[in-house]
Design a protein around this nucleic acid. Structure first.
Length: 526
RNA sequence: GCCCCUGUAGCUCAGUGGAUAGAGCACCGGUUUCCUAAACCGGAAGUCGUAAGUUCGAGUCUUACCAGGGGUACCA
């Protein structure tokens, strides 16, 4: 619907003024003003040296479209009222499974890297947000014709893996009866003991590597449980082994001016005001260098757009990452980094301290055991990524009955049950006949809300945030509950039964599709 | 020191530079002989942290400041 209006107004502006302008299409504050509003006159006022009012009037005179009932201008806004027939035509399209899909992405290849937790312990709820967010974003982008790959980067060669190996070794000694004093950098969770028991009698050379692989396996299982499947798993060790890290240094040193400086035995990256060590005085790389090599490897695979979802602990190195990549000739705007803010875990008033090393943390598996996959995913996708959020486990349990996810799922189940009953009674639920007979406010609220689904998906994809979709689903569910409560469908006016069933069917389709894009199930009954 | 995020109703939060700032929860009051009450309807609730700037127009952008949270220094 929005697209159609854009075309109409664009055409008129082109014809009248020979101008092109990126105007906005919104919904007026009061529905009495119309269904859609366009702000183009303001944007043209400067160029044309005319008042927005006059421009609006001129444009109004040229409007002649089959879908528009009427148009008016108020204070420079052009407001449109759409013909009932056009709304209903849109409604008839909305029962197909691919309704809402768009072409914003034009088939562009996108790589989303997310979670990428070090394989030194089970995933925590802190990762769950990024997991839910990344997967849902991928689904939304896919619906808009982006070609998306999900990738997990495995940091399997740093100090942390050494520490992991040491932790296992110490645990084995402890299990054999030795008194052990654990150094501060070791991991002490229950999983360490499990792995130690498993390997203690085997002949294994590298405990760190073995433990890392074992943990990675459980991470993957947890992700699968969250309905998340990665297309690629890329190992840092492989990037290093293939010489990609040295290549970065070599290529940066070829640049003029050379952004690398040797000082005090270390190699510094000094392209501007900020400085950062790339190679320590002991000859080892700081973690950022393999990271740069990894990102170049992403570009080399031909992606049009890279999206990184990082935790706030990684934000400090983003400027250097982007800077070095752009120095190497990769356009900065093709790398979008989104910082997913932390989740603070709470039990009632008490903050749960999260420490992998000490083994005090809540895992995703535990979270899912408590609240379920649906509630967990929906909950995370209720907020935009830049807002730090509290996750109160007590509250999540206590409120699980009132959790918004149930509100939407209940709407879906309600419609499903209604349609099932209707079909038993011999009614058609997909007859497009006589929809014009619908004339109640509750019905038209829904009819006009449905095309917003398309708009919401497009907006979500554009700003890379799926909470818009979550909120949309809550809105349309509310409108449906309102409709359902106030209008008797099967016991009401016999003439309107097929039309109301058709409308219900359309709403169900949109809710089902929306939930699917969030990775939440749409139950037939509850 | 440097960097990031947040500040909107009692609470939790929406709000691609547009018109009179919105929901949910909580609170108060109603609705079930009837297709799922995990529901619906009504009510009350605001100096959008402060100040300046940018412009036709600022909750939204810029700068400074205030408050809260977090990150970081040859760990990752």
């Amino acid at each position: 619907m929005r697209t159609k209006i854009r075309e109409i107004v664009k055409g008129i502006i082109k014809e009248l003024f020979d101008e092109e302008v990126e105007f906005d299409i919104q919904h007026p504050p009061d529905e009495k003003m119309g269904d859609y509003s366009v702000n183009a006159p303001f944007l043209l006022a400067n160029k044309l040296k005319k008042s927005p009012n006059d421009i609006a009037k001129t444009i109004l005179d040229e409007i002649d479209s089959e879908i528009i009932e009427s148009a008016s201008q108020i204070k420079g806004f052009i407001n449109f009222r759409i013909k009932k027939e056009s709304w209903l035509e849109e409604l008839t399209k909305s029962i197909t499974p691919d309704y809402g899909n768009g072409n914003l992405g034009e088939g562009k290849k996108v790589l989303i890297e997310f979670v990428s937790a070090n394989p030194t312990g089970p995933l925590t709820v802190a990762h769950a947000r990024s997991a839910a967010y990344g997967d849902s974003l991928a689904r939304v982008l896919e619906s808009q014709s982006y070609n998306v790959d999900r990738e997990y980067y495995i940091n399997d060669s740093g100090n942390q893996i050494k520490n992991l190996g040491d932790s296992v070794r110490l645990k084995i000694e402890e299990l054999k009866g030795k008194e052990i004093q654990y150094p501060p950098n070791t991991y002490q969770g229950e999983y360490i003991e499990q792995i130690a028991r498993e390997v203690m009698d085997k002949n294994i050379e590298d405990y760190g590597e073995f433990a890392g692989d074992r943990i990675l396996k459980t991470i993957n299982e947890t992700l699968k449980r969250l309905r998340i499947d990665f297309d690629e798993w890329v190992r840092e060790s492989k990037i290093i082994k293939e010489g990609k890290v040295e290549a970065i240094i070599t290529d940066l040193q070829k640049l003029k001016p050379n952004p690398l400086t040797e000082r005090e035995g270390a190699l510094w990256f000094t392209p501007g005001n900020r400085e950062r060590v790339f190679r320590r005085s002991d000859g080892s790389w700081t973690y950022i260098v393999p990271d740069i090599a990894y990102h170049r490897f992403k570009f080399e695979r031909g992606y049009d757009l890279l999206i990184d979802l990082l935790g706030p602990d990684h934000q400090d190195h983003v400027p250097e990452l982007k800077k070095s990549l752009s120095l190497l000739g990769y356009p900065e705007e093709k790398l979008e980094v989104k910082i997913i803010q932390w989740v603070t875990l709470k039990r009632g008033e008490e903050t749960v301290k999260m420490s992998k090393r000490q083994g005090s943390y809540i895992t995703i598996d535990e979270l899912v055991d408590e609240v379920g996959v649906d509630a967990a995913r929906f909950f995370y996708l209720l907020r935009k990524s830049s807002v730090p959020m509290d996750f109160d486990l007590e509250l999540a349990k206590e409120e699980s009955e009132r959790n918004p996810v149930y509100y939407v799922q209940y709407g879906h189940a309600r419609i499903s049950s209604l349609l099932e009953l209707a079909e038993e009674k011999g009614y058609s639920i997909d007859s497009k006949e006589n929809l014009l007979k619908l004339n109640k406010k509750e019905e038209w609220n829904l009819i006009k809300k449905i095309p917003e689904f398309t708009e919401t998906l497009e907006d979500s994809a554009r700003i890379r945030e799926s909470h818009l979709l979550t909120h949309y689903l809550l809105d349309i569910s509310k409108l449906y509950h309102n409709f359902y409560q106030n209008i008797r469908i099967l016991d009401g006016n016999k003439d309107l039964i097929p039309q109301r069933l058709f409308l219900s069917n359309a709403v169900r389709n949109v809710i089902r599709k929306g939930l699917k894009l969030l990775g939440v199930s749409a139950p037939e009954r509850m």
